[in-house]
Amino acid sequence: MLRILRARLQQGYRTIRFPEEPPVVPEKYLGRPQWDGGKCQGDCIACIQACPTGALSKSKGAVAIDLGRCLFCTDCTDACPAGAIQFTAEYRLATRTREALVVDNRPYALAKALDEKARKLFGRSLKLRQVSAGGCNACEADINVLNTVGFDLGRFGIQFVASPRHADGLLITGPVPKNMELALKKTYDATPSPKIVIVVGVCAISGGIFEGHPEVNNGAASIVPVDLFVPGCPPHPITILDGLLRLLGRIE
């Protein structure tokens, strides 16, 4: 018993002060990319050719980056001869719509809170059933991390539960393989309404690197309606937490 208490003392208090204080992200962290039109050279499409998932497009000389496809892999920054694309340390990425995930010359529309009625229901207590549908265990791992003392998701009233019957919504990862489609539908149907759906990771948004494979469904949105999109491969835990808190109106 004394040993356990001694260990408790050594381990200390470890919960981050987010959202009251900004989080610490790794020095080399690859956050929201940005494109510098001043540096981009005319009709060069080196970045578009380099992208493994077709996340970049160019129209009228302007490059748009679809975070719903982006692996944050730096193949584009390596390919660009002018250094016109850069990954910033911006960790806030979650949106309410698929279209808003495109980074172009418009301001990035971060997720707005649920409507008042839904916030009244879920704002102080949100129970989620996680469904991994082809997730590679990276998204799953960084969702699990939210339950550790470091992030302590419980303090926001958010909890992962063991049954869809106990849940207010689903949190889905992975491109949704055809082999997992029925199980996802059944889990969704088993969740009582009103319910919300959150997709985490580029695979669950668009299929990611697996987009177009006949074995997968190109993400969850083709199967169930989605309320929150959290891009990344995988998203940093703070990106997921930020998205959840925005959805609940805990961060404006």
Binding site: S132, A133, G134, G135, G174, P175, P177, N179, M180, A183, F210, H213, P214, E215, V216
Partner: peptide, 11 residues
């Protein structure tokens, strides 16, 4: 198993 099959080797 097989629910996670994404067809990587086939791709």
């Amino acid at each position: 198993l097989g629910y996670q099959h994404r067809g990587i080797e086939r791709a």
